[in-house]
Structure formats: structure tokens, C-alpha cells
Simulated assay, not measured.
Amino acid sequence: MKGAERNGRLVMIVGPSGAGKDSLIDYARERLSDDQVHFVRRTVTRPPSPGEDHNPMTADDFKVAALHGAFALHWGAHGLYYGLPVTIDDLLRDNKVVVANGSRLILPAANSRYPRLQIVSVRADPKVLAARLKARGRETSKAQEARLARSAPAAVDIEGTFVIENSGDLSVAGNRLIDLLVSRSGETIRSQTPLR
């Protein structure tokens, strides 16, 4: 749906499991007002869990919702379905900065639908990723190993991707994200490091 944006800006936060995407989003949300930036909750076919703010939905209900156009973007990964609400389009028409926890899998479709898409790639040291996955305890050790095996950067190369290293203190990475979100267009501090 090109043309939905006007002057709005969709900022898609992507990165491997354990990189701290939800933590960064929470950090920014706590420090920015709703009139500055709007943070959308994604729908996931998983029960509520600590550290992840999402709308839980069964797989069957998700499929019905997708068929009825409830999602602007949706995808499957790790045996689950994920969706971003179609209300994103209204927010962008109202010239809002909209932040969403996305996936590298959906970037080509997102880039096509939203020409002003801004991608933030969150990265962390592999040892940090492993420790975080273990600490959150959502999955078995085998499932954690599978996620880590898939955490190698995906073969997506979109110009203008902004890279945030999140292996250390959350405030350092969090403040970089806030700076990007409150910048007028993102252009002033946008990294030209491609997502690989």
C-alpha cells in the first residue's frame, strides 16, 4: 500500500533472538511520549511471556485475522506466526514515527510497502545472545541452539540500515535508538552500514 505514509516514518527493529530488541524498544518507550513516537504491539501465536509485549493469538485465529486484512505485514518464523497491525497505515498517514519489532524475513515486503522504511539492525556478541536466550527460559536447550544457529545475519542488503550494537549496557544502545527516533527524519544519524 504505497502512498500510506505521507510524512510518517516506519522504524523496523530487527535482529537475532537474544539481541535485545524488546529491551531496546521498552527503554525507548519509557522515555518518549506518545505524541513523539508510537510503538505498535505485534501479534504472536504464543502465550504472554516476560520481556515480550505482544498480543497473544492462536494460530487458527491468526490465520482468520490475516485473511480479513488485520495485519499490514505478517510472517512465520520459529514455528510461530507474527503480525503487525494494519493501523500502522493510519498512523503513518497522520505523520507519526511508528516503531515495530519486525523480522529480517519480512524486510523486502516491508521495504516495498513502505518506501520510507527505516531499518534498525540490533546486534550482539554470540556469547551474549546465548546467555540471554538461556536466561529468558522460553524454550528448550535444543530450541535455543536452533535459534542461535539461525542468528547469523540474513542475506538482506538494504541501503541505509542503522546498526546498533547491544552487547553491553542497555542505556548506550537505548540512547542511540532514541536519538534516531527523535531525529527529524533519521537521515542525520543514519548509518550506511548494510545489513548482511
Rank of each mutant, 00 (worst) to 15 (best):
H78M: 08
S23G: 15
G69D: 00
A59Y: 11
S112K: 14
K134M: 14
G76E: 11
S17F: 01
S49I: 11
D94G: 13
R31Q: 07
H54S: 00
M57G: 03
D34K: 11
L92A: 10
G15F: 01
P50K: 09
P56V: 04
P47R: 05
H38V: 13
L105V: 10
D53S: 10
F71M: 06
Q118H: 15
G79A: 12
L91E: 13
I25E: 12
A135G: 07
A131P: 11
A65T: 03
V14C: 11
A130F: 15
A19T: 11
P50Y: 11
R104P: 13
D34G: 11
R46A: 02
D89S: 11
E30V: 06
Y82A: 00
S49Y: 07
M12F: 06
P85K: 03
L129K: 04
R93M: 04
A109D: 13
R9D: 01
V64E: 15
N95C: 11
V99W: 01
E30H: 08
K127H: 12
A19R: 05
P48E: 15
T87K: 09
D125W: 06
A77C: 07
Y27R: 03
K127D: 15
A77M: 08
R93K: 15
K134I: 06
S33W: 12
D90S: 12
K127P: 02
L107P: 09
A77F: 00
P126K: 04
W75S: 10
R104E: 10
R123H: 04
S23D: 12
D53Y: 04
P85V: 04
Y114T: 07
D34T: 10
D89R: 11
L10P: 15
S49L: 11
T58N: 14
V40R: 04
L117C: 12
T43I: 00
K134H: 12
P108T: 04
K127Y: 13
V97Y: 06
A100V: 08
V86W: 02
H74C: 14
A77D: 12
G83W: 07
G18L: 03
V37I: 10
V98Q: 07
K63P: 08
V11Q: 04
N95T: 10
N55H: 09
H74A: 09
D61T: 01
L67F: 02
G51F: 05
R29V: 02
P126H: 06
Q36H: 10
P16G: 13
S112F: 11
N101L: 14
G69M: 01
D89C: 13
L84P: 12
R46N: 12
V98S: 01
D90I: 05
G8A: 08
V99K: 00
V122S: 00
L73H: 09
R6H: 14
V86P: 07
R104N: 06
F39R: 05
L133T: 04
P85M: 08
V98W: 08
I88H: 01
L84E: 02
L91H: 09
A70E: 06
F39Q: 03
S17W: 06
R104A: 08
I106L: 15
Q36M: 06
A28N: 00
S17A: 09
A110I: 05
D53L: 01
L107E: 07
S121F: 14
H74D: 15
G20E: 02
A130W: 14
R29N: 08
G15H: 00
G79V: 10
H78C: 05
V44G: 04
P50I: 05
N7I: 07
A124N: 06
R113H: 14
R31E: 03
R113K: 15
